[in-house]
């Protein structure tokens, strides 16, 4: 494992193997691998899942990147280990001052770690803003539907509020807004804009620091009304 980290370091820094290896051991220590001197000589299969993900983070950070892209970094891990890794990413981000793009399907992970959020659907962004604000008060029907469908949002044993249908094939995207076949609110848009016109980014009416791609005239009021009715 140490060899792989040292290799990444030497690719960008003209240093000897010994210096690079020393740096690798430092990095393993930094990400909380016990006994890093010895562990640097272990192979990945000798590591547990959580330790492997720690080693990957060490590999990602060895060259002091300004931007770290973490693609589902904890999806394969158990919850107690996931919590450790997310804490580690947060701590290292503070220490190194890197920006992080966290790619995940888990909204709760976003709620606890991200500053800003971009919600994507069928290859395009549909809503962006501060993570906490978007998750607390979504203004795009897709974001709203996702949040409503979580079990934590429902009373015990009552029916979950699922989004109808399935995500479209990227080979054959729906016309207009890609979300319209599954959208419950398309009837509230005048004319046939949802079917024919791809919505452009625009600020959400009534909210600061928020943009959506949706044709609804007043999405905040529409979604709030819906939540009240349910």
């Amino acid at each position: 494992m140490g060899g792989q980290i040292a290799e990444a370091y030497r690719a960008h820094n003209k240093v000897s193997k010994q210096v690079a290896m020393k740096r690798a051991v430092e990095m393993l220590d930094l990400v909380g691998i016990p006994n890093p001197q010895r562990r640097a000589n272990s192979y990945p299969h000798e590591f547990s899942g959580g330790m492997r993900q720690r080693a990957m983070i060490a590999l990602g950070l060895v060259n002091n990147p300004k931007l770290l892209i973490a693609d589902e970094p904890t999806t394969a891990l158990d919850v107690t280990v996931q919590a450790q890794i997310l804490d580690l990413v947060n701590d290292l981000q503070k220490e190194f001052g890197s920006a992080v793009i966290l790619i995940t399907h888990d909204l709760a992970v976003v709620a606890e770690t991200a500053d800003d959020i971009l919600v994507m659907y069928a290859g395009r962004g549909v809503e962006k803003g501060s993570a906490k604000e978007v998750l607390a008060q979504p203004s795009h029907p897709y974001t709203y539907g996702l949040l409503q469908s979580l079990p934590s949002h429902s009373e015990d044993l009552e029916e979950l509020k699922a989004i109808k249908g399935t995500p479209p094939s990227l080979l054959n995207l729906p016309s207009g807004c890609s979300f319209h076949p599954r959208c419950e609110f398309k009837t509230q848009v005048e004319g046939d804009a949802c079917w024919t016109v791809l919505p452009e980014w625009r600020p959400t009416p009534g909210l600061s620091n928020r943009e959506i791609r949706c044709h609804l005239t007043d999405p905040v009021a529409t979604l709030q009304h819906d939540e009240g009715v349910r």
Partner: peptide, 27 residues
């Protein structure tokens, strides 16, 4: 520890983060 480790969407709704218990190491 298991309940405490599960990330909670309610953090975004301004509900104070629960007490955090962090386990060390793997199973």
């Amino acid at each position: 520890a298991l309940l405490s480790a599960a990330p909670d969407i309610n953090v975004a709704r301004g509900i104070a983060p629960k007490e955090r218990i962090r386990l060390v190491g793997d199973v």
